[in-house]
Design a protein around this nucleic acid. Structure first.
Lengths: 137, 137
DNA sequence: CACAAAGTGTAGCCTTGGCTACAATTTGTA
DNA sequence: TACAAATTGTAGCCAAGGCTACACTTTGTG
């Protein structure tokens, strides 16, 4: 059994990328909504202190996902934008799948948030199929 | 909007209970499989050092989920057993749902592992319905 | 312009969940 | 029984992700 397929190993690795995905996704959304993304915006969105955001953003800057200078707005690098777009796409698919399945949109939103980081490509593809086949009815 | 329904707040809370659920579930399974559950068994199952297991187990003992004395086997309290059973049930439902959807059993196993802690009661109920309707075909 | 308010940064602390290295205990067996 | 192997425990380290308190910039407005 490969390391990737060992359930808890995969789950742990997923957790390590979750924060990055959540942040780049949120940054992209905030930029689309209000033009620029600031620390406070993320703090509100994640219901977390501005300090936590600052620390996380600087880690993601080190990781090459975000760009930012002191007191400046938060920006996406090319790498970050790619990840953000992929992440939003996954999120959208999971959400639409749940709705197609008959879940309330508010519940679907919360569940999609939690599930999106743990759905494999194979499952995601099936979700997409399902939505295409019986979602647009 | 209630605190519970705020996506990231819910997700964070889920993460806090994930470890407890994973552990009690594993303990119950190991006990069923080999009679008793020891630190090494969990270390193997989670692909983690025995030290990590020891620490986590003692935290869960403090939390009232597990019972254990020095060098002894790991046991479930009533509270722990209740959680373990509920957790296994969720896991089973998510797994069966994925399989009913056409996912490979090995992928379903990994995905269920990651997803089970993030699926609401509402969604779980729909999963169950789905399996009942088209799972046993 | 000056000052208040809003936004950020920094210091320092906490818990969780990882680890290695080494000590101690239990268990199995020659 | 005594020793080796297996299992656990303990010390001490690290990173991530939370926080409060306090300092410093930026921004907005009288």
């Amino acid at each position: 059994m490969s390391e990737n397929s060992r359930p808890h190993v995969r789950t742990r690795r997923d957790h390590r990328t979750e924060t990055a995905e959540d942040y780049v996704e949120a940054v992209l959304q905030v930029i689309n909504e209000r033009g620029v993304c600031r620390v406070v915006d993320l703090a509100k969105r994640f219901a977390v202190s501005h300090v936590t955001v600052t620390k996380t953003v600087s880690r993601l800057k080190t990781g090459g996902y975000l760009a930012r200078e002191l007191y400046g707005p938060i920006e996406l690098t090319r790498k970050g934008r790619r990840m953000a777009e992929a992440s939003m796409e996954r999120h959208r698919i999971v959400y639409e799948f749940l709705v197609a399945l008959g879940i309330t949109s508010s519940t679907a939103e919360v569940d999609a948030e939690g599930m999106e980081h743990h759905v494999s490509e194979e499952t995601l593809a099936k979700f997409k199929e399902f939505v295409a086949a019986r979602g647009g009815k």
